[in-house]
Amino acid sequence: MNEPVEGLQVDADRRLQEKFWFWERVGWAGMLVLVLAALAGLTGASGPLSSGKIETGGASIDYPRISRWRAANTLSVRFSEAGTSGTIVLPKAFLDAFAIDMVTPQPTQVIATSKGQEFHFVLADGDAAREVRFAITPQTPAFPREANGTVSGRPYSFSFTILP
């Protein structure tokens, strides 16, 4: 049916149509990949790959590896080392990308430093894990950026991405 049909004035192009059908199916495969990526967490919000966890010895940090612009998220720090105080420095790169909406429990002191902001917390005595949560909202799209800070004096580093 590639030839023009006698009497029928129709602007059909079978070759172009065949090409389109091929690319249409490639598009469907792309849609499937996107859905699978979303299920894996590669598009943020939730899913196993959307968040990461790092251990620094005295504390662990659950951080959003992939976030979505303006979608609320959480950064949590679990202090496992014995002691009644805990400190975390959130680096400037992180603070530029995320707004901190709320911190629970409230820090006793927040110090602005050249490297970022230093949050001081009072912790219950003992060596059971004590958690501090930062409710955060991404403020700007960001493609892999490094956050280098310290938690109770020990350095940590993670990379984060904010999808538009």
Partner: peptide, 24 residues
Amino acid sequence: GDLLDGRPTLLVCNGEIDKRALRK
């Protein structure tokens, strides 16, 4: 225009059904 809107597709031509076109 072809890319965005495509072109008409013949599904039946002179009474002959194009099964491939229907399937696709």
